[in-house]
């Protein structure tokens, strides 16, 4: 058999699946977002009309879209740094020469990553229950008045951020830990002989060495956090007062609850656009810093 043909035969199953069930739908989605595909079109294809950019135009004039985008940005801008700090902090602890039982701690801290979002979100809803949740019980004991986590629009999103940090920080912790272990120890040795403090060692050896990894991990985490959906779906159902409606939640509601598939597709592409812009900006910013260092 011709080797070229063999290679394409090897590729065929995977490329077929990715082409038919991913690339094709993505292109179709772009088309769909330019139509008024709704319940009537779902029933009878002849009701479908081409509307140009009307879906996008309408969305940009709808307060709920901006609210959803705002909630998602809030979640990303506060949640990602918190999550990265938790990852870096625990990775540094695990990498400390004084740390004992490292494999045990590493596994335990990583455990939430492999759990099912829906299942642990159900736990979270119970932990943060206003009446009989453990969190408020502990707060009351510390002399802090109980917080209406699930009913107060100011507190629902922070609660979801805490959830996301708890669920996800272990992933980046493992990657950062590998990065820390790759830093040659004689660098620290030399710094210690020069009398550099722990903070200065961190600032001038650890941080510069980790910068490329931090950048990559940061970008991946940002794109992951933009896709917020299951958490508000299970914990708050988008409430209270729609304060936890994310962009994807809006897409799901529009598309699969109200069957406004055209509008929902436009929401999806706007999210893609925002994500692309945010991660591209991080790249540019990160590369500039790396060149300076």
């Amino acid at each position: 058999m011709n080797r070229n043909a063999a290679a394409w035969l090897f590729l065929a199953p995977a490329l077929l699946v990715l082409g038919v069930f991913f690339l094709l739908p993505v292109l179709a989605g772009l088309g769909l977002s330019l139509t008024d595909y709704d319940l009537y079109a779902l029933a009878d294809f002849r009701n479908l009309r081409f509307v140009g950019l009307a879906n996008y135009w309408d969305l940009l004039h709808r307060p709920l879209f901006w609210a959803a985008l705002g909630h998602t940005l809030y979640f990303v801008i506060v949640g990602v740094p918190l999550s990265m700090l938790a990852s870096l902090g625990t990775a540094l602890l695990l990498n400390a020469s004084a740390a004992r039982f490292k494999p045990f701690f590493r596994t335990a801290l990583f455990a939430p990553v492999v759990t099912t979002v829906v299942a642990v979100a159900v736990i979270w809803r119970y932990l943060f229950n206003t009446q009989f949740g453990v969190v408020n019980f502990v707060l009351t004991h510390l002399g802090i008045p109980p917080i209406d986590w699930l009913g107060d629009p100011h507190w629902a999103m922070p609660m979801i951020m805490l959830f996301a940090v708890w669920k996800n920080f272990g992933y980046n912790m493992i990657i950062l830990l590998a990065g820390l272990q790759a830093i040659p120890t004689d660098l620290y040795e030399a710094a210690r002989i020069d009398g550099a403090s722990a903070w200065r060692q961190f600032r001038h050896i650890t941080l510069p060495a980790l910068t490329p990894i931090l950048l990559m991990v940061g970008i991946l985490t940002v794109s992951g956090y933009f896709q917020l959906f299951a958490e508000p779906y299970v914990i708050t159902e988008g409430g209270p007062l729609q304060s936890t409606v994310s962009v994807l939640y809006l897409m799901y509601d529009q598309g699969f609850k109200w069957w406004n598939m055209g509008t929902a597709s436009a929401v999806a592409f706007l999210l893609f656009l925002v994500m692309f812009a945010a991660t591209a900006l991080m790249w540019r910013f990160g590369e500039g810093r790396e060149n300076l260092a």
Partner: peptide, 20 residues
């Protein structure tokens, strides 16, 4: 092309995929 496709979030494909 495949690696480039990684930047597209899976949700963008979900609505047409459902119809398909």
């Amino acid at each position: 092309v495949l690696i480039g496709a990684l930047v597209i979030p899976a949700q963008v494909a979900m609505l047409p995929l459902f119809l398909l």
